[in-house]
Simulated assay, not measured.
Amino acid sequence: MEPVRVEEVEDKGSIIVLTPELLRSNSPDHLVLARRVRQSLEARGLLRWLLDTHSA
């Protein structure tokens, strides 16, 4: 199962649905899942856009 679901909304952009549960840094399973989320967003070019927007 993919940890991130990205759905295009016509010409308006994307809806990004992340994991349905709260990720905790003290859980090894959650760290693996967070890494998969990051990789999935990076592969779609969505994480870079998000970081660029917040650093401006």
Rank of each mutant, 00 (worst) to 15 (best):
S55A: 15
L51G: 07
L46V: 09
V37Y: 03
D11T: 04
W49S: 12
L51M: 15
L22T: 13
L23R: 02
E21I: 04
V17M: 11
E42C: 04
S25G: 12
V37K: 00
T53A: 14
P20H: 08
S14K: 11
D29K: 04
I16C: 01
T53D: 13
L23Y: 06
R35F: 05
V32G: 06
T19H: 05
S40V: 08
W49N: 07
R35Q: 03
G45A: 09
I15P: 01
D52M: 10
E2C: 11
D29H: 06
S27A: 07
S14A: 11
R38W: 09
L33D: 00
A56R: 15
L18N: 00
L46D: 02
L46H: 04
I16N: 02
L51S: 11
T19Q: 06
R48V: 14
L50K: 13
D11L: 12
A56I: 14
V17Y: 05
R48T: 15
P28M: 10
K12L: 02
S40N: 15
H30R: 03
R44G: 08
V4R: 01
G13T: 01
P28C: 07
V17D: 03
E10Y: 01
L46I: 10
R35V: 01
R35N: 07
V9T: 08
G45Q: 10
D11W: 05
L23A: 04
D52W: 09
H30T: 02
T19E: 05
K12V: 06
Q39R: 14
G45F: 04
R44T: 08
L51C: 13
R24G: 06
A56P: 12
S40Q: 14
E2V: 09
H30F: 01
L47C: 05
R5D: 11
R24K: 14
V6G: 00
E42K: 13
D11N: 05
L31Y: 05
K12G: 07
L50R: 14
A43F: 13
L47H: 06
T19C: 08
E7N: 02
R36V: 03
K12F: 03
E10M: 00
R36I: 06
L18C: 03
W49R: 12
E2N: 15
S27Q: 07
V17P: 00
A34T: 02
L41P: 00
L23F: 08
E8Q: 11
S40F: 09
E8R: 09
E2I: 08
L22Y: 12
